[in-house]
Nucleic acid binder design. Structure first.
Lengths: 241, 241
DNA sequence: AAAGCTAATTTTGCATTCAATTATAAATGG
DNA sequence: CCATTTATAATTGAATGCAAAATTAGCTTT
């Protein structure tokens, strides 16, 4: 194994090297640790590494062009976020989530969105509501035109806007962490296979908007949790096919 | 072994050095990083360091008898948990939480407990319910006897048992993190100053138990969130005195 | 030739070292 | 005497070095 010249890279890791130039343009903005952390997290969240794949330190160091110290710090943080497993003396692996784990994460996401809805009802400004309402109508348009991709995007944006409207940074951070873990599962990919579920999801979103408008916190909380539960069930069915 | 002679310690940090011998007896159990992480987290959570206190690396290293590498790793993780702030080139400080931050954390805790209650209703065994019911009666006894300390302990145990009964490890972990951040505020310390609130809290716990028995998930979810809200209000009032 | 054992290589965990930034002290000028 | 500047010390961020553990390769023994 010749390690003096650039090695033939593991395919799955090849792209890590690509983006640094752009990030490097702004050189001393963040610490090396933060940069490595953000990039590695994105890379894992975006699903570029297969479940359980080994993450050899030395290789990643050459990819990122840093020493082992900041990389190891980033790995510890990612482990605490649940994205990687750290095996003693055996290195880091991308955490392999089983169906059971996804079920748990979905439920937590549902709980966090339920909370977000409740808080949004309490503190949301009229402008924030109007923004969500506009997004809802936009999303409905995509539904009518059967534009799944844009539907999905605006759907996600609505959910994020509700979380933002809660105005709770601790919640926002946790939501991002959980959403990141789940994102590795492209759960709604073949929602179109289930036309029934799509229509149902739209109806649920109408109920969400209605409760938001009436600022009915407890009710919205319940609707949002159940909405996420239905999403989860649909995801499980579509995966098992 | 490593610390043959004991250095002059900073007063506020002196106790950190105490427990290592016991932990050291079992040498290769955990990595140095994990040990330092756990001990430093406990130390901060238990409120031994004042808000905003500087955490000089070198000093802590001598306290723990480790080099800067594992300590810095632990600090990065604690920063991601929100327990410390990391100022670039300026070291770590115990994160100073303002009233606003506590309000946010309380709401998140309420949201997580609301979720826990809902999930517990779905999956809890009869034995688990019985255990909670027993704890509830025990707690009621402490209330009648005005034993605030034991009341508080069993109260906390009930809430933890509900979270455990949810059977969701992701939730359990997040709950622990949030509870840790809040624990630095001894919020219920002078609950006894408010006899009204104490009676009210007990009544709320009766409603919690009732909803649990009926496995009324959505209802319990709502009750638990509001219970935490009331706790929060009581805490704020008692602090402002 | 396969299974088991031993030696070499690699990889990890942690300590140490070095450079860069910040804090502190001294000195100079107004 | 105080403010500003300069020099020194301390602290942080990151790279390198080293010992222990683990993985791999090679060898022995059937």
């Amino acid at each position: 194994m010749s390690d003096t010249k650039i090695l033939p890279l593991n395919d799955s890791l090849a792209e890590i090297t690509a983006p640094p130039a752009a990030t490097r343009a702004e050189p001393s903005k963040a610490s090396l640790h933060d940069e490595v952390l953000a990039r590695l997290r994105d890379y894992i969240v975006e699903g570029n590494l297969s479940d359980g794949a080994r993450i050899p330190e030395r290789e990643l160091c050459t990819q990122f062009g840093v020493s082992r110290t900041p990389l190891r710090e980033a790995l510890k943080v990612l482990a605490s976020e649940g994205l990687v497993d750290l095996l003693p003396n055996r290195g880091a692996r991308v955490r392999a989530l089983r169906a059971e784990d996804y079920k748990e994460l979905f439920d937590v996401m549902g709980g966090l969105e339920a909370l977000a809805g409740r808080l949004a009802c309490e503190s949301m400004s009229q402008a924030q509501y109007a923004e969500i309402e506009a997004l809802h109508h936009e999303m409905y348009g995509f539904y009518l035109r059967r534009d799944l991709h844009e539907y999905f995007r605006s759907n996600q944006e609505i959910h994020q806007k509700i979380v933002d409207a809660a105005g709770n940074r601790a919640l926002t951070g946790m939501y991002a962490t959980v959403a990141g873990q789940i994102r590795r599962l492209r759960y709604a990919a073949n929602l179109d296979a289930k036309r029934d579920r799509w229509a149902e999801a739209v109806r649920e979103h109408e109920a969400i908007l209605d409760a938001l408008r009436r600022r009915a916190g407890a009710e919205l909380s319940d609707i949002l949790f159940k909405h996420l539960r239905n999403k989860q069930i649909a995801a499980r069915e579509s995966v098992s096919e």
